[in-house]
Amino acid sequence: MPDTALPYANLTPSLILDAVEACGFQASGALLALNSYENRVYQVGLDDGSFLVTKIYRPGRWSDAAILEEHAFARELAELEIPVVAPLPLAAGGTLLHYADYRLALYPRRGGRPPELEDPEHLRWLGRMLGRIHACGSQRLFRHRARLNIELLGTGPYHYLIEHGFIPPELEHNYRQAAEQLLGEIESIWREVADWVEPIRLHGDCHPGNILWTEQGPHFVDLDDCMIGPAVQDLWMLLSGDRSDMTRQLGLLLEGYSQFYDFNALELRLIEALRGLRLIHYSGWLARRWHDPAFPMHFPWFNTPRYWEEQLNTLREQLERLEQPPLEP
């Protein structure tokens, strides 16, 4: 297996092209790295002039069973004519190839631009699509994918940061205090609503960068973080601005969403809790990947004193957000 400290050290252009041909496609030799850090993603030119995209999974992150559940969910959505980019079938059968100690999948190339989240019709349209995704996702649960919880997104990353010495000594006491207070408040909120929330299969990482817009409307990409959790996890990352902005955006999203799936209003209590978890998780994700040379190269501002000072202030601000009543669209 590849060295876990340098997970992509042996991933050469010729290996990528050979792997694509092992999948049953004739590569022209054209290869373009796309913007991805957790996995490695490339646009590959084919002899017939067309293109496809190959995703090479980070070694050791997911089991084969978890990856295949991701693929099956994407294909299930695509069969319902929900605009999700699903993996292509391979020449040897299935959708996942093992090649030279790596695992990869191939996808059709789909372009587009980010959604315009100030456009009411874009928000309604996104709401309709997410309602359809969740109507499908509610039919059964994953067996091998992660379940969204505080340990996964909050306490686990927090302890990693502390135990591996990422917080500067002069800030560690205050950071610990703010993070632990935030996590405690999130746990209280979670307990309030846990018995009333029905977990479903989710996209899991539904931020605007994973939605591409064309004249035909939106399509969703990158289900690499699909998981089991509350429906609001796929909605809150589309909200931005001040409280009045988010209230308006949420109302438009739910206007479309409710045409296809019933939204549990109690989940609105989780929006700021989920935002708080993501703040801690993001720092923990960067820390866990810091041994990968791509991360210091592309995130040079991480792990600087200024970064941690800003994070401390952000955690304190998030505590204040948690004290506010939930949004009411």
Rank of each mutant, 00 (worst) to 15 (best):
P2W: 09
Y8E: 05
L17N: 08
E21F: 01
F25T: 00
A27D: 00
G29A: 06
L31G: 06
N35T: 12
R40K: 10
D47F: 03
V53H: 04
T54C: 14
T54K: 02
I56D: 02
W62S: 04
L68D: 09
R75K: 13
R75Q: 10
I82C: 01
P83W: 01
A86M: 05
A105Y: 06
R110S: 12
R113N: 06
R113K: 10
P120R: 04
E121R: 14
R124H: 06
G131P: 11
C136W: 01
Q139C: 07
R140V: 11
R147I: 11
T155N: 07
Y158L: 15
E163T: 07
G165P: 05
E172C: 08
E180A: 04
E185G: 00
R191E: 14
W196C: 05
I200N: 04
H203V: 02
G204P: 02
G209F: 03
N210S: 06
T214W: 05
D224A: 08
D225V: 00
R243A: 10
S244E: 15
R248P: 01
S258K: 12
F260K: 05
Y261E: 15
F263V: 12
R269P: 10
L270N: 11
I271G: 11
R278E: 09
Y282T: 13
W285L: 08
R289E: 10
H298A: 14
W308T: 02
N313P: 00
N313G: 14
T314Y: 03
L322D: 05
